[in-house]
């Protein structure tokens, strides 16, 4: 662990953060939310600083960019506001902020597709639903601010216990994770990336044409398995002139430097090639969830007995007829 962060720094940061969060949780009397937020930020900053110091010590090229710190601060700060804000609507809005900051970190982690998917699906759809429900299920606020707060929103439940538990959890988690990271292989490459260009003959061909490495009549040779004969290791592709079903004058050409699989492409390969069954399960779950939501909300049509009986009669007569 010492290689990555000094343990004292880690635990001190976590403790300070814990105190900060405990302080900022809503309480009936004045809760020092600003102070708590500051403390939390200091704690977080201590830990991240600890990481960064070591990183600067050892491998300066591996430091995360400044954007990381910005996004982390926004994400966690907004996260803190989610759990401390007394108003559910604001909490949900802060959660959107957390999501946005997360999406920013996704981009830093070169998961561009997922970043935008997250924003669209999560911030755009799910959270909006939350807002709807919150608005549906909350009484309209009156003039005075305090009245609009329901008592259960105004007061946190056992903030110290929760904060202690949570930050003990964080201490354990980060200890284990940090010491685990040390044990990971240095470069983290488990398997060489798959030869996905072979599945993209059109794109390879277009790039080759754009680079002018192949003649106009030449085409990429397609193997018996339906894949283009592209060698990712040597970065060559086999091209030839098509002639009634087969190729003549076959030769290998080098691929252009800038030809690469894009994030969304390789994600799609992984997604569709390796997890087709899982996609189906996800579909089943969504169907089930839809049905579940329908059933749950149908139940809420609570009529009083008399009304029910009145309804029952025409219903029965309809069926009779």
């Amino acid at each position: 662990m010492g290689e990555i962060i000094h343990p004292f720094l880690l635990y001190a940061g976590i403790a300070v953060g814990g105190i900060g969060v405990a302080a900022s949780l809503p309480r009936r009397r004045v809760s020092p939310q600003l102070l708590g937020g500051l403390l939390g930020a200091i704690g977080l900053g201590m830990v991240l600083l600890g990481f960064t110091l070591r990183a600067a010590d050892r491998t300066p090229d591996q430091m995360p960019s400044i954007y990381f710190y910005v996004f982390a601060l926004i994400a966690l700060g907004a996260g803190l506001r989610v759990i401390t804000n007394r108003r559910p609507v604001y909490a949900a809005l802060y959660f959107i902020l957390t999501i946005l900051a997360s999406a920013g970190m996704y981009i830093l982690l070169s998961a561009t597709f997922m970043a935008f998917a997250l924003i669209i699906v999560y911030a755009g759809a799910i959270l909006i639903t939350y807002l709807f429900v919150i608005m549906l299920a909350t009484q309209a606020p009156s003039e005075e601010e305090t009245d609009s707060l329901t008592p259960y929103d105004a007061e946190a439940r056992e903030p110290f216990f929760a904060a202690a538990t949570g930050f003990a959890l964080l201490a354990v988690l980060s200890t284990m994770v940090v010491s685990g990271v040390r044990g990971l292989p240095r470069d983290g490459i488990a398997t060489p990336p798959a030869n996905e260009l072979a599945s993209l003959p059109r794109r390879v061909e277009r790039a080759l044409r754009a680079a002018g490495t192949i003649e106009p009549e030449e085409q990429l040779v397609i193997g018996s398995s339906g894949l283009a004969l592209v060698d990712a290791q040597a970065r060559t592709a086999r091209v030839g002139i098509p002639a009634d079903g087969s190729f003549t004058s076959i030769r290998d050409v080098g691929l252009p430097e800038d030809l690469a699989v894009r994030n969304v492409e390789s994600l799609a390969f992984d997604f569709l090639n390796r997890h087709p069954g899982t996609i189906e399960i996800a579909g089943v779950i969504l169907l089930m969830a839809m049905l579940g939501a329908v059933v749950l909300s149908r139940r809420q049509v609570e009529l009083d007995e008399e009304l029910k009986r009145q309804q029952a009669r025409p219903l029965g007569s309809e069926e009779m007829a």
Binding site: V284, L291, R298, A312, L315, G316
Partner: peptide, 28 residues
């Protein structure tokens, strides 16, 4: 009884197909 109007329509007692389908979802 619902048909004859003696009792009100009650989702929980009459139409429980979704119940079985939830069950089958779960078993799946």
């Amino acid at each position: 009884r619902i048909k004859s109007g003696a009792e009100a329509f009650d989702a929980i007692k009459t139409n429980r197909a979704e119940f079985y389908s939830f069950f089958l979802f779960s078993i799946t």
